[in-house]
């Protein structure tokens, strides 16, 4: 695959400093600072309403922070977004699988940001789509309507779109929700390849078993960053208790179960 200019070695992919976001006066994120290095898989762990999706929105430039800054690849966020540096891989439940569109067209949508206003694909665009589909082994299925794909193939199609976009930062929203073991292994394998190419992945999840498995770094978040660093250092009982409330030992031994926050511990639930 052709090397994207933004994939050149660069110590720092994401830098968030002192980020504050509030919706209608309700604080969603407060003083969030973190750094994700090139070629790193970072888990973003927190309960529902802890601000994971707000942080993603901030990284995609959807919300205007009341304070703080974000830079990607050393560039201010806006500039990085214009260079197609950030790709968002949606939760599978949020996709309309009956939409009359086929796999290659979904992947081609990853290229739209770099095209002219009429979005007429050029030779480079077709090549990028082909290479991306070959990477995730979906090239033979490129003419399938997206709903005809299996669960694992669907995930791969959207990863291919991020690849076609040439993004150096991938934001993955609960990528393992409702995925069987085989697909999960395949995805992790792909994630590790992406990491080897110097891309960085920020993976939001509330399932701790995945984080310890393959994340290099972890951010524990509950409106603000509670702990952040190498997975082994961050994953202490104390930190997890602060993130989720309740008994963390229980959480770690029952992977797949969504940690249940104590009643009233989620005052930020109303986040849109």
């Amino acid at each position: 695959m052709a090397t994207h200019p933004d994939l050149a070695p660069n110590a720092e992919r994401i830098r968030v400093s002192h980020l504050c976001v509030s919706y209608h006066g309700v604080v969603a994120l407060h003083e969030v600072s973190l750094r994700v290095n090139a070629g790193s898989i970072c888990g973003l762990v927190g309960t529902n309403g802890a601000g994971k999706s707000t942080l993603f929105k901030a990284l995609m430039g959807f919300v205007r922070p009341s304070q703080g800054e974000i830079s990607i690849n050393g560039l201010p966020l806006r500039q990085a977004l214009r260079r197609q540096a950030v790709a968002y891989v949606p939760q599978m439940e949020s996709v309309d699988w009956n939409f009359p569109i086929h796999v290659a067209n979904v992947v081609m949508m990853g290229r739209y940001g770099g095209m002219n206003l009429l979005r007429i694909p050029g030779r480079d665009d077709h090549r990028a789509v082909r290479e991306s589909l070959e990477r995730v082994e979906l090239w033979p299925l490129r003419h399938r309507q997206i709903g005809e794909l299996s669960g694992g193939q669907r995930k791969r199609a959207f990863l291919a779109r991020a690849l076609a976009q040439g993004a150096s930062v991938l934001l993955l929203d609960e990528p393992f929700a409702g995925v069987d073991i085989r697909t999960e292994r395949l995805m992790i394998e792909l994630f590790q390849q992406f990491r080897a190419e110097g891309r960085s992945l920020l993976i939001s999840t509330h399932d701790l078993s995945h984080v310890t498995g393959f994340c290099d770094e972890v951010v524990l978040i509950n409106k603000t960053v509670l702990a952040y660093g190498d997975t082994s250092e961050v994953f202490t009982e104390e930190n997890l208790a602060r993130t989720f409330g309740g008994s963390p030992a229980q959480l770690l031994t029952s992977p797949g179960l969504e940690p249940r926050p104590e009643p009233g511990s989620e005052p930020w639930r109303s986040e849109p």
Binding site: F62, L81, Y88, D96, G110
Partner: peptide, 12 residues
């Protein structure tokens, strides 16, 4: 129609 979030994130 298909994916407004992606559209926005790539600057559409």
């Amino acid at each position: 129609c298909f994916d407004p979030t992606h559209a926005r994130s790539i600057g559409v």
